[in-house]
Amino acid sequence: MVKIALLDDEFLFVEGVSVLLASCPNVKVTLAETDGLRFLSRMSEMLVDDIPDIVLLDIEMKPMDGFEVIERLRSMYSEIKIIILSSHYRQNVLGHMMKLGTSAFIPKNTTKAQLLEVIDAVHKNGLYFTTRDYEMLRSYLNTSNRRPMLSPKDKLSSREQDVLKLICQECTSQEIADKLYISVRTVESHRQHIMDKVGAKNTVGIVLYAIMSDIHPLPPMA
């Protein structure tokens, strides 16, 4: 069961998505709100068993916008995965989204099937990228001067690079373990070491690092 929280300042949109997800047997909406401040307040009062695995939220909201909500969520619950569901699907938003460590960015006119596909991928792998996302990311990186650097003592080992490449291919920990003939626990240990070395907070951060360091090249343009 994937626990979902919804936040959007349009009541009808929140209600509509809640009804849509209620028909899915493996998804449970544990919180739905239209105000960022109330959302964070209610999150802080939730029982541990009700804390969502994934938060779906919009960007442009008042009085607190989605980016500020994400920053506060990150400080409160580092393990929660975040999906931005917005009509403002632009390159500069995607770049800022990745800096904040959100897991996916999908337009509001997405279909039910696509939304469930994204939720499933984010829940399993921590990341969901479309071809269009990659195209915008390529453009974003071409205009960015920031290049990640590691000191020699922090350099990723050959095995860590193998794990990182498979993470970038959106493989689950079990799939990585099967491909590399190691245990899931070892995969998770490598993942944590990679995050510690590159200073990433989650899967999105280490994928961005891999792309900027040419460990994982972006797919070629169609």
Rank of each mutant, 00 (worst) to 15 (best):
M46D: 04
M46L: 11
M46Q: 03
L47R: 11
V48T: 08
D49T: 02
D49Y: 04
D49K: 13
D50H: 06
I54D: 04
L57K: 02
L57Y: 01
I59N: 01
I59Y: 04
E60S: 08
M61Q: 00
K62A: 12
P63N: 01
M64S: 08
G66F: 00
G66N: 00
G66A: 05
G66T: 00
F67W: 15
F67D: 10
E68M: 10
V69E: 12
I70C: 08
I70P: 09
E71N: 14
E71Q: 14
R72Y: 13
L73G: 07
S75H: 12
S75G: 13
M76C: 15
Y77S: 09
S78R: 10
E79S: 11
E79F: 05
I80W: 02
K81H: 01
I82Y: 00
I82K: 01
I83H: 11
L85M: 13
L85F: 15
L85H: 14
S86M: 06
S87L: 08
S87A: 11
Y89M: 12
R90A: 08
R90Y: 08
R90Q: 07
N92L: 04
V93D: 06
V93M: 03
V93K: 01
V93L: 07
L94S: 05
M97Q: 06
K99F: 07
K99P: 10
K99C: 10
L100F: 10
G101D: 02
G101W: 08
G101R: 10
G101P: 04
T102Q: 10
A104V: 00
A104T: 00
I106L: 08
P107M: 01
P107N: 06
K108W: 05
N109A: 12
N109Y: 06
T110K: 10
T111A: 02
T111R: 15
T111M: 12
A113Q: 08
A113R: 07
Q114H: 07
Q114K: 03
L116Y: 01
V118H: 02
V118E: 04
I119H: 02
I119Y: 01
A121K: 02
V122M: 06
N125P: 11
N125W: 04
N125G: 12
Y128N: 10
Y128M: 12
F129D: 05
T131K: 10
R132C: 11
D133M: 07
L137Y: 04
S139T: 05
S139G: 05
L141Y: 03
L141C: 01
N142Y: 03
T143C: 09
S144D: 04
N145T: 06
R146C: 11
R147L: 13
P148R: 00
P148H: 06
M149W: 15
L150D: 15
L150R: 04
P152R: 03
K153E: 13
L156Q: 14
E160I: 00
Q161N: 13
Q161R: 15
L164K: 00
K165M: 04
L166D: 06
I167V: 14
C168I: 15
C168S: 15
Q169S: 15
C171L: 13
S173V: 02
Q174Y: 09
E175Y: 14
A177T: 11
A177L: 15
D178V: 12
K179Q: 15
K179I: 10
L180W: 09
Y181G: 07
I182K: 11
V184W: 11
V184I: 12
T186D: 13
V187I: 03
V187W: 01
E188G: 00
E188M: 05
S189D: 09
